[in-house]
Design a protein around this nucleic acid. Structure first.
Lengths: 253, 253
DNA sequence: CGAACCCGTCCAACAGTCTTGGACGCATGC
DNA sequence: GCATGCGTCCAAGACTGTTGGACGGGTTCG
């Protein structure tokens, strides 16, 4: 299916690494890039000018930066996702109803990608993280997605990405994760109680289409505000409801 | 400065064309891509699997789609732009004050890129167009940007991109454009009166930093609502004001 | 003022990567 | 069961990417 055994084109990998460095550094010159990636200066130059020519980089007076063509292609990819087309409205509503941060995530390459986020009235200030690839096992949305994946695929993801600890509460044992996923399957929603960051709670529910997970929707906020009945009943119900609405809309369009 | 005389790496160009096709088609198989770009099937396969490996494409049961890594890199590039960091607030306010569509644009490769847009209460429904590269000569923001560019650069842009007519009112003559840009320079803002689309008016002002244009801010809406005193005085004043505030903030940070 | 040094750009020759046709396995549909 | 479509894989050759070094322009230092 997705073998990926053959070695990939070296030039593409190099180009990607250069772009990644430009992204991290926020802009760099030819010599900079050459040093950082241990390339001959001339090679770096060829790559950078090629990247510029196709719009993936911009030469701003000797400093190369990532070009906005990435934003173009990325926005396009996002807007083609069904769950994005129909789900934003529900995420907005979740944010309004709870006052917290509501998010939409999709699975990709065994990780999760935030497609859309909306901050409610009291929501904590956060960087958008849109497009960022994150580990699934330490997030409510992520665990919700995992819970709806076939067992085989989950094993593969764990093998590849591992179960990295983010806090003391992060699930780092396979068995524990399996038990958790089963619980989630029964409940219909996932809970993240400080497994990503201390004091941060999150509740997420999966969205499926024809039996395949296409993403998840979640609400997160500080422990101080998400507890008791609100943590056990109210928010889970709202999240499940939102996910359900999106699921239905996604399935018939 | 930006020579770009040397021929770019063929493999990068091919990869880009494949991504572009995936973007346009919304997903395609190996044979599809091979046919469309007149490549041997095996070549298409090598490229696609390489693109997948670096996260630029996703293989969804035989159908390759554009990966969300583009969104990741694109969002990152956007959020690094100073004008974006400090300008969104003002664009939001413009949208609220006017009720119309307010936009932020930056120049790149001789074209304009929408970085951010906000719809006011009565604003027309539009696709976001975030990240999209558009011609400068037929837009208020675009003309505002041009008016603040050195003459030489403007000539080069016209040479490269031409002055394509979008409506009967589009400026297609060099002399006419020069006169218009001079007028804009004096007024401090640019007007687009149906030059992009019939019945659509737009008012934009440039944002500079150390004498270099870093973008423009604009408000657009239907002729029916943007006319008379509102067209001549009110909105220009608001737009100039917003651009001015952004300019000051951008210059001292 | 000149020398030394940094940068980005360009070039031509070589090494090796990309390209390619074809074989293979697997579905699907006749 | 056969034909046709797909995606995948492979090994050999051809061409392209890679490379060290040269060049010119800018800046800094003595």
């Amino acid at each position: 299916m997705s073998g990926a055994k053959t070695k990939p084109l070296k030039s593409l990998r190099s180009a990607f690494e250069i772009v990644d460095y430009l992204k991290r550094s926020g802009g760099a010159g030819v010599t900079d890039v050459a040093n950082e990636l241990s390339l001959p200066k001339s090679t770096a130059h060829v790559y950078l000018s090629s990247l510029e020519e196709i719009g993936f980089a911009v030469n701003d007076e000797g400093t190369y930066r990532v070009g906005m063509r990435f934003l173009d292609i990325g926005e396009n990819a996002r807007s083609q996702k069904q769950i994005y087309q129909v789900g934003c409205e529900e995420v907005d509503r979740l944010a309004a109803e709870t006052g917290e941060l509501a998010s939409m995530m999709i699975p990709e390459h065994g990780r999760g990608v935030y497609l859309y986020r909306k901050r409610g009235e009291q929501a904590m200030p956060v960087k958008s993280h849109i497009g960022k690839h994150v580990d699934l096992h330490c997030r409510a949305s992520g665990k919700a997605i995992l819970s709806a994946l076939p067992r085989e695929e989950i094993e593969q993801i764990i093998d590849e990405k591992g179960l990295v600890a983010r806090t003391e509460r992060t699930i780092t044992e396979r068995d524990e994760l399996w038990a958790e996923l089963e619980r989630i399957g029964k409940q219909g929603y996932a809970v993240n109680d400080g497994e990503l960051r201390e004091g941060l709670r999150c509740i997420g529910a999966p969205v499926t289409r024809n039996g395949r997970v296409v993403g998840a929707i979640s609400v997160s906020g500080p422990v101080g505000r998400i507890q008791g009945e609100r943590f056990e009943e109210e928010i889970p119900k709202l999240v499940k409801n939102a996910a359900n609405i999106v699921e239905i809309t996604v399935s018939y369009s």
